[in-house]
Nucleic acid binder design. Structure first.
Length: 562
RNA sequence: GAGCCAGUAGCUCAGCUGGAUAGAGCAACGCCCUUCUAAGGCGUAGGUCGGGGGUUCGACUCCCUUCUGGCUCACCA
């Protein structure tokens, strides 16, 4: 249902196409002014008439007046109010018919999008710093699926590097297998932190670490076994977190996967004369020094992060033939991705334009940056558990007789955390605080979930929709506003996908929830006459569908009662 | 020093390709549960959109300049 098209077709201006009018159509500042508006300032110059006069001419010469309940020229704008009941009917019919597919589209049909996100480091705990990344990536994954793309979620594991040498040394010196089996990554973290503390005093430990990492590279069985074990422990633990956050991946090919895939790329760079020696290292320089050189091979012959990302990009292009390849990574790495993408461009690969760094902000603590090495971290598991605990306490207070309390508390607590993370523009930094994260009032996840449960409760009590429907039952400021927001939900999903910005969906959900709560307060649904009640139940049903779909795109569950 | 990003109410933030009187939430104060879920609704108060220029009929939005903060700038990832 494209209402902008209806308006564009109804407006006639000499020398201006319906397409141009369509593109100019905007949303009024205030909903009381109309559903759409057409600013006429652009026509004023060519027509040499004042915008006011043009607007008036348009308003009085509408082609299909029956589609509108009100068309008015105000200060250079033409405001259109669509025939409310007709509009509402079409929108609601569509939502109920499409149900869980409402908001989906086929703009991505036949195209593949790779999304690199979460990308956890093996043997390091999942802390608040990883949450932004994981939630944004996961939401984009779901949004792109809804838009019809074939999506490949990639967890580019940090499973290679000297830190594994350190870990082996630490384990051999102070490790306790039983403790690590029991405490998992937290056990590994303890010895990792201890290693860094002791290495300050004893430089020889770092030499040992380098030696043991070399053993992994050389295929020494003992080293490989330990490395595999660390990896297994970590993946088992993050799998639990991913399950709670409703996050999934199609590939866990991490850094170690690309060990044997870098040399061909380096060979090609050499062949094309792009690789040069500098201070013992091998680098790629950029024209006019528009970027600092990209370092690909260290003086000691070892490869680097950029080398692996280069190999990964080529592997992904070859394997998935992507339309876009997104890297959901904090903005700290802006330069790194610019360099990697530019190297690929210099290699003559036109698809380098399809690589995109979806940068996001960083999370810090009130007393400084998060740091695994110093142990200054907030474990995500603890945050989730505290949120669930709080949710349970609220349930005990407000709705103690409800069934499945613990399940609902899990959904609400975890939902509050995810919602909070996805509420702001992704580029924003944030300072973690329990006070903020455990607030369940106002524009929060629990508010959206509460509104969903409220819709559900009304519908349960309302019973079946039988008999006539009186659409005037939703013909009010509150009803019209809600219908308008429901109608625009697909636009929000589309824009979120286009701008790689899940917060657009999050914000829209809040707007819908607010509009429903206002309607609910102003207009009693179940005590109205049956035909009026029917129209209102349909509105509640459509709201329920949109809230559920919207929250689902963010990875947030919708309990029926709370 | 250079590059990139951010600066909007006391706090946290929206503000779409320039459009009408710059919007929410939190915190504060006041009101609304004998009617469908009060994790709710309503109201009051709160602003030189960091500063200064410019482009435009029109600038929070674009350009220049300047201040403040963050990130990054060769062998970590």
């Amino acid at each position: 249902m494209d209402y902008k098209q209806i308006i564009a077709d109804a407006v006639h201006i000499d020398g201006v196409s319906a397409q141009e009018i369509y593109e100019l159509l905007a949303l009024p500042k205030d909903t009381s002014m109309g559903d759409f508006c057409l600013p006429c300032f652009k026509f004023a110059k060519q027509m040499r008439i004042s915008p006011l006069a043009i607007a008036q001419n348009i308003a009085t010469s509408i082609v299909a007046p029956e589609s509108f309940s009100h068309v008015e020229a105000v200060g250079g704008y033409v405001n259109f109010r669509l025939n409310k009941t007709q509009y509402a009917r079409k929108v609601l019919d569509k939502i109920l018919a499409e149900n869980d597919n409402f908001g989906c589209s086929s703009i991505g049909k036949g195209k593949t999008i790779c999304i690199d996100y979460s990308s956890v480091n093996i043997a390091k705990p999942f802390h608040m710093g990883h949450l932004l990344n994981t939630c944004i990536g996961s939401a984009l994954y779901k949004i792109c699926v809804a838009l019809g793309y074939n999506v490949v979620g990639i967890n580019h594991l940090g499973d290679w590097g000297t830190q594994f040498g350190k870990l082996i040394v630490a384990y051999k010196l102070w490790g306790d297998k039983a403790d690590i089996d029991k405490r998992g990554v937290r056990g590994l973290l303890d010895i990792y932190v201890r290693f860094h503390a002791e290495a300050e005093k004893d430089e020889a430990l770092n030499d040992q670490a380098r030696f043991w990492f070399k053993q992994i590279e050389n295929g020494n069985q003992e080293a490989i076994d330990l490395w595999t074990w660390f990896k297994k422990i970590t993946l088992a633990e993050v799998a639990k977190i991913y399950k709670r956050l409703d996050v999934r991946f199609d590939s866990y090919n991490g850094e170690s996967f690309y060990n044997d895939k870098m040399q061909p790329i380096l060979d090609e760079l050499k062949e094309k004369g792009l690789l040069e020696k500098s201070e013992g290292a091998e680098i790629v320089r950029f024209d006019n020094d528009e970027l600092p050189p990209c370092l690909l091979v260290r003086a000691d012959g070892a490869t680097l992060y950029a080398t692996r990302d280069l190999a990964a990009a080529f592997y992904r292009k070859k394997t998935y033939d992507f339309y876009k390849c997104l890297y959901v990574v904090a903005y700290q790495q802006n330069l790194h991705f610019q360099q990697v993408f530019k190297v690929i461009e210099k290699m003559g690969c036109e698809w380098s334009k399809d690589l995109e760094h979806v940068a996001h902000g960083m999370v810090s603590l009130e007393d400084g940056a998060l740091s695994t090495r110093s142990g200054n971290v907030v474990f995500l598991e603890d945050v989730l558990n505290k949120a669930v605990e709080k949710a349970l306490a609220v349930i005990e207070e407000k709705n103690p007789n409800i069934a499945n309390k613990s399940e609902i508390a899990e959904q609400v607590g975890v939902g509050a955390i995810i919602f909070g993370v996805l509420f702001n523009n992704r580029i924003k930094d944030s300072v973690f605080s329990y006070d903020k994260v455990l607030n369940f009032e106002g524009e929060t996840g629990p508010y959206a979930q509460y509104t969903f449960a409220r819709c559900n409760s009304v519908l349960e009590k309302g019973g079946d929709i039988v008999g006539d429907i009186d659409w005037n039952g939703i013909d009010s400021e509150e009803g019209a506003n809600l219908v308008r927001l429901l109608d625009r939900f697909p636009d929000a999903v589309e824009e979120a996908g286009r701008r790689y910005e899940p917060s657009i969906v999050t914000r829209h959900i809040i707007e819908v929830a607010k509009a429903f709560n206002k309607f609910y307060f102003e207009h009693n649904i179940n005590n109205a006459d049956q035909p009026v009640k029917n129209a209102r139940l349909i509105l509640a049903k459509a709201t329920k569908i949109v809230l559920s779909k919207g929250l689902g795109l963010l990875g947030i569950a919708t309990p029926s009662h709370m």
